[in-house]
Simulated scan of single mutants.
Amino acid sequence: MDRKPHFFFAVSLPEEVKKELSRLCLTIKERLPFQRWVHQDDYHITLAFLGTAQDGKLEKAKKLVVEQLNGQSSFSLHINKLGVFGKKDSPRIFWADTVKEDKLLKLRERVFFSCLEAGFELETRAFKPHITLARKWAGSTPFEEDLLESNNPFEEASLPFQAKEVALYQTHFDRTPKYEKIAAFPLLTE
């Protein structure tokens, strides 16, 4: 079955942060048995998920995002904890969280509303910035919250990085890594 590609705008992560998160995942994989672990090159923070897209609409979104990001500066983010989405005893997503940062929320707002203006129908749930690390709980026993606390490497210190770029990604369902950066929009460095 040939699936149409999906597109999304996201904050790209620096290579050293991707490597550090991948190293972390290797150390906790056995204690947190999820079915599919995300390839390190696919780590990102989604700002707007577009789904399938016609070329004209996608080009309009890119143009509007460029306009909205003009003059926007890079900023610091800090990965500080682990969490899950989904059923309490069988979560579907395992993720890393960032310390709340107003600049990230404003950046997301600019990208999100550009995509709406371009004609995309977007997710209406509240924005919860996160980096997906794994999917679908596969443990032989129900998931328990204390697994996160006992495997939290950020208890002592957060993992800081500079958000320097927004990118447009295309999903390839038949590849690993499955996200291809097809456009990059750098933020100003100070």
Rank of each mutant, 00 (worst) to 15 (best):
A163W: 13
R92E: 00
L168N: 04
V66F: 09
E67C: 07
G139F: 03
F75I: 12
E117T: 15
D55I: 11
I93V: 11
K63G: 13
L58I: 10
E109S: 14
F143P: 00
L116S: 10
K128G: 12
F154I: 02
L64M: 05
E156T: 11
P91H: 01
K87W: 07
P142V: 06
P177Q: 03
V84H: 02
E145N: 00
T141F: 02
F127L: 07
L116K: 11
S140A: 15
A138D: 05
V111M: 11
S114F: 03
E155A: 08
L107G: 12
A61H: 04
R125H: 06
H78R: 13
E59G: 13
L168A: 05
R108P: 14
A48W: 01
E149N: 14
P160N: 10
L159M: 09
E156A: 12
N151I: 03
G71I: 14
P177K: 00
F127M: 06
E180A: 15
E156R: 12
K63I: 04
K181N: 05
S158C: 14
T124I: 02
E155I: 07
T141K: 03
F127A: 07
L50I: 08
L58H: 04
T171W: 12
A134W: 05
A96L: 00
Y169G: 05
L82S: 03
V166M: 06
G119M: 12
A48C: 04
S158M: 04
E165H: 06
P177N: 02
G51Q: 06
E59K: 15
K62F: 03
S90Q: 01
K103Q: 14
L122W: 10
E145T: 01
I131N: 01
K106Y: 07
L133F: 11
R125D: 07
K136D: 07
W137G: 00
I79F: 08
L159R: 09
W95R: 00
T176P: 09
E59N: 15
K128T: 14
E149K: 12
Y179M: 11
L50K: 08
S114E: 00
Q68R: 14
A126F: 02
K60T: 15
L104D: 11
G86I: 01
A126Y: 00
A167V: 11
I182H: 13
A138T: 00
A138R: 01
G86L: 01
D55M: 08
K164R: 14
G71C: 05
N151T: 10
L133N: 04
K181P: 01
F143Q: 01
P186R: 04
L58C: 09
A134R: 02
F161K: 04
I79E: 02
K62A: 15
E109H: 09
A118G: 02
K57P: 02
L77V: 08
N80E: 09
P142S: 06
E101D: 15
F113H: 13
F49K: 03
A96S: 11
L147T: 00
Q162F: 09
S73K: 15
E123T: 06
F161P: 12
P177C: 00
R108D: 08
K106V: 13
P153W: 03
T176H: 09
Y169Q: 12
Q170G: 06
F161Q: 06
S73L: 11
Y169P: 04
A96E: 03
A184E: 15
F49N: 04
E117V: 14
R108S: 08
H172W: 08
T124L: 01
T132V: 01
K88V: 13
E144S: 12
L159E: 06
L77Y: 08
G71N: 06
T171P: 02
V111F: 12
K63W: 01
